[in-house]
Design a protein around this nucleic acid. Structure first.
Length: 350
DNA sequence: TGTCCACCGGAATCCTGGGGAT
DNA sequence: ATCCCCAGGATTCCGGTGGACA
């Protein structure tokens, strides 16, 4: 069934793109000056999740490097690298300048090092740049003549609202590439291309591609997730073709997989908080803090819990209903619990 | 209408632990 | 071995907000 699993991975960059030629052209035109030793203006890629922003950014940079291998690139996911220190560190790591760096290196030393690495252009992709907590690093990077920025975010207005005036005014003139949701037919075509490389020929029918694309409602990440999950499922069953019930079973799987992954990333106290909220269904702050304190031996302070809560809201794991007095928290998606057993069953499939 | 207070979140400060310098 | 520097998480402190209630 599965011939090449890499193709179904989330970070796979295809060798050719489907349905995003205009966007690729737009971005590569912006970066073109780099080929003539000039500076490229910063570029923004805006659009909802799963529309290929990250994929196109990486693809375009690979194309660029094929024309000029001297151009160095760094990919930074601001979800994980959300401080100035971490962003700078990640960039230095990508260009191999972290040999003797450690946690206690002064921040300015990191910046100085990046500043000194000016023997050629560096293109930095800042993915999920709206998750950056210390936005002043954008200003630092902007100041470096040999660094070009490709920034990825969901919504333009939300991103700009978070920036301070200094950097906002400078970035206002940048190129913007906008991505729309895929139509079902477009996503079906993308999935088909992936399947051609990843799976044995004829494993999936055209109608099944459409079913998957439809269930993913324009989100390629979800679509590929369903495809991957269905392929594994079919493989476990020893069939060489997708059946409709395999696909049916894989849809909820893929939709909650991302959530489960973020849930795993939580630290113990955050998970306990999440469990308290999940158990209660919906709970008010004071009750939540009390219940939490009863469950742990060394409780964190309420302020810390509030930080956890905002973080979890951010992750889209829980939601806060109402503001101030009378606010309550609840988990975003109740199905998470039920799908748990689904994943664990695995080999004992019916 | 005024007071109370649950709740939020910003800012300053403390604490911890890794790692270099001496 | 000891001291110093650092980042980042936790904690402390506190002001703002607006719904509840008299």
């Amino acid at each position: 069934m599965i011939v090449d699993a890499r193709v179904l991975r989330e970070d796979f960059v295809p060798t050719e793109v489907v349905h995003r030629h205009d966007e690729v052209t737009h971005l590569s035109e912006t970066l073109e000056p780099l080929l003539y030793g000039e500076r490229a203006e910063p570029a923004f890629l805006f659009g909802p999740t799963g529309v290929g922003k990250t994929c196109i950014a990486r693809y375009t940079l690979e194309q660029l490097r094929e024309e000029d291998p001297e151009i160095r690139t760094a990919y930074v996911n601001c979800w994980q690298e959300y401080t100035r220190f971490r962003v700078l560190y990640a960039i230095l790591e990508a260009i191999d300048r972290t040999a003797d760096l450690h946690r206690s290196t002064p921040k300015d030393e990191l910046f100085g090092r990046l500043e000194a690495a000016d023997e050629g252009p560096i293109v930095v992709i800042l993915d999920e740049v709206d998750q950056l907590e210390e936005t002043d690093v954008l200003y630092d990077l902007y100041r470096l003549r040999h660094v070009s920025l490709v920034m990825i975010a969901n919504r333009e207005d939300e991103l700009f609202a978070r920036l301070d005036d200094r950097i906002r005014s400078r970035l206002h003139a940048s190129t913007r590439v906008r991505f729309d949701r895929y139509r079902t037919t477009e996503l079906a075509a993308i999935l088909q291309r992936r399947a051609e490389k990843a799976l044995e020929p004829g494993a999936v029918s055209d109608a099944q591609f459409r079913t998957i694309a439809d269930a993913a409602s324009g989100d390629a990440r979800v679509g590929i997730g369903i495809l991957r999950s269905a392929a594994r499922r079919a493989e476990r069953r020893g069939t060489d073709q997708f059946t409709d019930d395999v696909i049916e079973a894989s849809i909820p799987d893929a939709q909650t997989a991302i959530r489960r992954k973020t849930l795993e990333g939580l630290i113990e106290h955050q998970r306990i908080l999440y469990e308290v909220i999940a158990d209660a269904g919906e709970i008010e702050p004071t009750d939540l803090y009390d219940a939490y304190e009863r469950r742990v031996t060394k409780p964190k302070t309420e302020r810390t819990l509030r930080n956890y809560l905002t973080k979890m809201v951010h992750y889209d794991l829980i939601e806060a209903v109402g503001k101030r007095r009378g606010r309550s928290y609840r988990v975003v998606d109740e199905e998470v619990q039920t799908s748990e057993e689904d994943g664990a069953v695995g080999e004992s499939e019916r």
